[in-house]
Design a protein around this nucleic acid. Sequence first.
DNA 1: GTGATAATGTAATCAGCGTTACAGTTTGGC
DNA 2: GCCAAACTGTAACGCTGATTACATTATCAC
Lengths: 241, 241
Amino acid sequence: MSRKRMKKVEKMDGTAGQDRQEAERSPRMEARRAAILEAAAEVFFEMGFERANLGAIVRRSGGSLSTLYQLFGNKEGLFEAMVTERCTDVMKALAEPDVPLRDPCTTLCGIAHAFMGVILRPDAQGLWRIIMSEGIKFPSLPEVYFREGPDKLIAHLSEYLVVLHRAGVADVPNPMDAARSFCMLVHSDLYYRVVTGMQPVPDDAALADHIRGAVAMFWRIIMPAGGGKTCHPDDISPSRG
Amino acid sequence: MSRKRMKKVEKMDGTAGQDRQEAERSPRMEARRAAILEAAAEVFFEMGFERANLGAIVRRSGGSLSTLYQLFGNKEGLFEAMVTERCTDVMKALAEPDVPLRDPCTTLCGIAHAFMGVILRPDAQGLWRIIMSEGIKFPSLPEVYFREGPDKLIAHLSEYLVVLHRAGVADVPNPMDAARSFCMLVHSDLYYRVVTGMQPVPDDAALADHIRGAVAMFWRIIMPAGGGKTCHPDDISPSRG
DNA sequence: GTGATAATGTAATCAGCGTTACAGTTTGGC
DNA sequence: GCCAAACTGTAACGCTGATTACATTATCAC
């Protein structure tokens, strides 16, 4: 092990694992790069870092192994580049969920649907597995994942909760903690069971039901003391909680 | 790939990956088995399934590679045996948390402390990473993990919530969902950040603070309509929620 | 066109590691 | 003590896969 590592460190110098950022890249190379990243995502998400092999990635992307090494340095570099790119890409929909402002529970349901819609996507599930298992070996990955994903959603959601609080329709002394809890209640352990393959991705009806239950609980957390006149009863399943 | 797999399947027959269960095992072998499982846990938890190598495990356990193969068949068999054993072992403390029955919030804080105490242990974190990443390839593992861990805690906790509900001190129409939500609020995304190495394990004070906040939120979910006279205000940090 | 440069395809290198074979050693019943 | 069976240690075997070397081909400014 030591010999190979040494060699690699010498070679990569300070830019180990970094995608080369030299000025302009030719458009042809840019296309290669995108294709390789796409193929890498498929393979890494399906197999995990160790089981994935570069041959399979090259076969799918159609390019050549040499190009891959020129662009990404080595397997780890490709891996980090792919995960980083996917994190910002997949989570884009989380930062600015396109949800109509209606009564609070309807809006919260909308946000929850957007949230679940993103994290249940196959590539988001793949990201999750990789972040959980490889986070220790690649510390930059969870960093990016949380910054681009959960943290952005939490910031956005907590802004909304502040609005509710100021308007007096909800009681949210600590909006960040409340937003965090919202996410936990919504993805619930359902997400773990889906990601591990114990359960299939729920269909729309089941998902809607689950979300109604989660939002109902969350509403009880932030509901003002007098009870929530602003929350339409129809949006809250009475059989949950 | 096909050749090797074929060979393995032929060899292992119907008992692939199964620990041999023939009648009595000699006490010497039993000791070997325990030592190998212990070493395997260390190595697998540190490296993950693929990166782990059997040589390192044998070196730590002190036995011989032959014995390992006799006992566990192959790497996968050892892995599955180790994870299965650890799941039932680590989670034992979850099934019957030894928590004094006091006012609800104090009791819930006690349960939460027991919960976090278990899942923050280094081997429990290792289990989590492995279940998340290898669950798809080894479907029996998440099965065991959830059955022995979360499900037992949820069952136990929901019994307690039923008691509260019947006594009229809490409003819990669906105790299973409520128990599930309790776990989510308690481990929170804090757990993700610890498991991925983004944050260190919180010290006692920070943990207690976190748990107070989580229990306070949970209490608002199950609090009866009139408000909770049964919950000591001292147990609930007012700055959270 | 033409030559310098960039990009590709292929094959070789090289180490790591799961697995197996086998020869030696210990154990426990008689 | 002795012998079958269980156990151990070591050294191969074979394969996979990351990495590199190199010869070939495309690109583009002039």
